[in-house]
């Protein structure tokens, strides 16, 4: 009889990283569809440029520089979509192209690829673009691709929460701290119903790779994002606060992980 012997556990849950990436893409599809419907061909061009540039960059790096078997695991598509949604409808197409290349090459691969990056790659791309070409990134009065009815994004977010692909602790503490602080400082918090904010809270602040491991850590992360968002909001505009807050909290995630640990359950 040819039976095999292997170590336990003998069963594995059927979620795999590929499924999680697919889940992210599916969750973003309603937003992408509505964006295409509202903004038409320019949106289409931006999204395509972002996704193709992201996947292409990743494929090229994995294949020619790292000589890996698989050119991409699909997470570049997510990065591309997120970046596209953050851009204004009227940007010239080299903006999304450069943004996506930077997001993947610097935001992700320079750190060692999916799983090792410290910052959310899409946000890295966005930040570089914002600093280099502020005029293209902050055109007042021009809509961004993400400026769609917020419930469309919430549908995707609900799906992610339901599937367990994102952790509820971060969006919950993020939202609550923003509302609470705004009330305290008597600031207008209506921007929490704006697409860009919801995208940040549910799709970018929740990225598993760049957020803390422990539950406590996630609450700290969410509250930190909330505080930073409100403080930035005193000076800048909401579109930028969310992104910068998340990036800043990304950078201290390793620190949170280091110091905020649950008490181990030692026997005896």
């Amino acid at each position: 009889m040819s039976i095999i012997v292997s170590a336990p556990p003998h069963i594995k849950k059927d979620t795999c990283t590929k499924k999680m990436v697919c889940g992210m893409i599916i969750a973003l599809l309603p937003a992408v569809a509505v964006s295409l419907y509202l903004f038409g061909p320019p949106a289409m061009a931006i999204i395509l440029t972002c996704v193709l540039a992201a996947v292409g960059t990743e494929g090229a790096i994995q294949k020619f520089i790292l000589k890996k078997a698989i050119p991409t695991d699909g997470s570049a598509i997510v990065t591309g979509l997120l970046l596209a949604l953050l851009l204004h409808v009227n940007v010239p197409l080299w903006i999304p192209f450069i943004g996506a290349v930077v997001a993947i090459a610097i935001g992700k691969q320079a750190f060692g690829g999916y799983g090792s990056n410290i910052f959310n790659p899409a946000l890295v791309g966005w930040a570089v673009l914002t600093m280099a070409w502020p005029s293209h990134m902050a055109s007042a009065g021009v809509a961004r691709l993400v400026d769609i009815p917020p419930f469309v994004l919430l549908v995707g977010a609900a799906f992610l929460l339901y599937m367990g692909y994102i952790k509820w602790q971060i969006p919950a503490s993020y939202l609550i701290s923003v509302v609470f602080l705004s009330a305290l400082l008597a600031r207008d918090a209506s921007y929490i119903f704006i697409g860009g904010f919801i995208l940040g809270v549910f799709f970018m602040a929740t990225d598993p790779v760049t957020t803390p491991l422990t539950k406590k850590g996630r609450f700290i992360f969410g509250i930190g994002c909330g505080i930073l968002t409100v403080i930035y909001g005193l000076y800048g505009n909401y579109a930028e606060d969310v992104c910068y807050s998340i990036l800043l909290m990304n950078s201290i995630t390793p620190l949170i992980d280091r110091f905020v640990r649950a008490k181990p359950f030692v026997e005896g």
Partner: peptide, 26 residues
Amino acid sequence: EDVTTPEIQPCINCAKCVDVCPANLL
């Protein structure tokens, strides 16, 4: 069909393991 040897991927830091660990470890 029950015995799969899936390819090992890099850790994506998703913390699912942290959430289930009964000993509160990482």
